[in-house]
Structures are given as structure tokens and as C-alpha cells.
Amino acid sequence: MRTRRARRASRIAKRIASHAVLILACLFAVFPIYFIAVTSFSTIPIAGITASILVPKPSELTLSSYDFVLFHYYPSFVSLLTNSLIFAGSAAAIGLLLAAFTGYALSKFNFPGRRTFVYFILLISLFPSFLLILPLYFTFKDLGLIDTYLGLIIPYSAGAVVFSGILVKNYMDSIPDDIEEAALIDGLGRTEAFFRVLLPLCYPILGLAAFLAFIGPYTDYAMANVFITSNNLWTLALGLYHLNSTDTGVQPYGLVTAFAIVMSLPIVVAYMVFQRYIIGGLTLGSVRG
């Protein structure tokens, strides 16, 4: 039998160890972000980076990188942002619609061929999307869609369809059939019941589907790089990549990181605000199983 004191000591030791592990994890998690943040306020070029950059003197901090990125970069930040929002926003809207329809059909209908269809979309989604870029490029070139808004919105809209469709399906499965049936009895047709009852109940998962459909195009470099050539159609991702790859080591590294911060901000905020929904939505299939 251990004494009470020994038990108490071991409990305290366990608690200290736990905090130590978590603090280490937090340091690991936060370090690159801290690095991004701290360099974005400095004027030191990448060639001048030393460990001392991590503890800057308050007097050295400056907003000049933000000023450059937001107001003096070419193409203008506003134009990059607008393009990104157009591409990602349209793709999200289309992707959302497709996911909602797909999820509904798979969840609430038992149509002949359902199993085949699921295998079909699963198989298709396994093909690495980066490898579709070139065949699509040739096709879109023939259609005259290269270097147009439509030319990038179309391929983007398929990006998250399968994944989001299955997310929506899983969520709709959790809505009891009798809610829909109550709507039928109350005087709606099946289509109206879908739009007026089922869809409003799916808002949380639809939000997640839209978010996922948005974030892919918003941060896409590989496809935009091939499909877009004119500066006036450039997206934020292209701008950032360009800024990073043309860094010769003399301009302030803060330009890249300030850009990164500004570009990430909306996504980070969305993640933090909708954390619960996002995690819940993404784990629905696994935890329920």
C-alpha cells in the first residue's frame, strides 16, 4: 500500500508531465506561425535571418511589409483577392449545390444503381487531382476557356464534390425519415420537402461543404498556374508563390510572410469560429461507424 503522500506526489508529477507535454506541443504548433508573424513585421531579408529575429526589439517592428503587399504590389492585392473570391466563391456555390443534390439522392432514395454510383464516384475521386491538370488543360484550350474566369471555375467546382456529397449524405442519414414524411403529410411534394425542410436542417453541414469547396480553390497553386496566364486574372495563391519564388534574398522576407498572414486571416478566423462544426462534420463518418 502506497502512502497518501506518495499517491499525492505521483498525481502532481503526472500533472506536471502532462502540462510539459502539452506546452511542448503548443510550442511546436505555434512556432512556424510565430515565425511568420514576427518576420512580417520586420524588414530583414531572408539572407539576414538569425535566431535573434525571434525576439525583435519593439522599435524594429514595422508595418512596411503590409503596406507594400496591400498597396504597392503588382498585380494589386485587391485584384488578387477579388479574383480569388470570384474563383473560390463560385466554385463553392456550385460545389455546394452539387453536394446537396448528391447527398440527398444518396441518403433519401434507394434507386436502382445506387451502389454502382457510389463506387463510381469513389473510384473517380481516387485519381490524383493534380494529374488531371494537363488533360483538362488541352480540353479547355480547345474550348477556348484558358485564361478566363469560367475556365478555372469549372474545374474547381468538381474539387470537393465527392467528399462533400458523402458528408452531406452522412448528415442527412441522421435526419429521421419521419421529418420528411411529416412534411409530405403536411402538404408538400417530395421536392418541396427537400428544399423547405431537409435543406434548412442541413445548414451546418452545407456550411462545412461550402467551406471545404472554397478553401481548395482559394489555396490552389498547381491548377491556377497552368490555367491562368494574364496578370489580371492572378489569384492570391499565384501572387504568394510568385513573391516567394522571386525572393532573391535582398527584399524583406516580411513581404512573403505579411502576404501569407493577410491571405490566411479569413480562413483562420473561419476555422476558429466554426471549429466545432468542422470537426463534427469531418468525423461524422468515423465516430458513428
Binding site: 429521421p176 419521419d178 414524411e181
Partner: peptide, 16 residues
Amino acid sequence: PRDRNIAMVFQSYALY
């Protein structure tokens, strides 16, 4: 169902 003009109360109540 909607054209039969009947009302139904479900076991789960099926409230929206």
C-alpha cells in the same frame, strides 16, 4: 400523401 388530406402524428412526433 399530401393529396389525401389526412393528418398524422408520428411516434417520434417528427416535429421540424
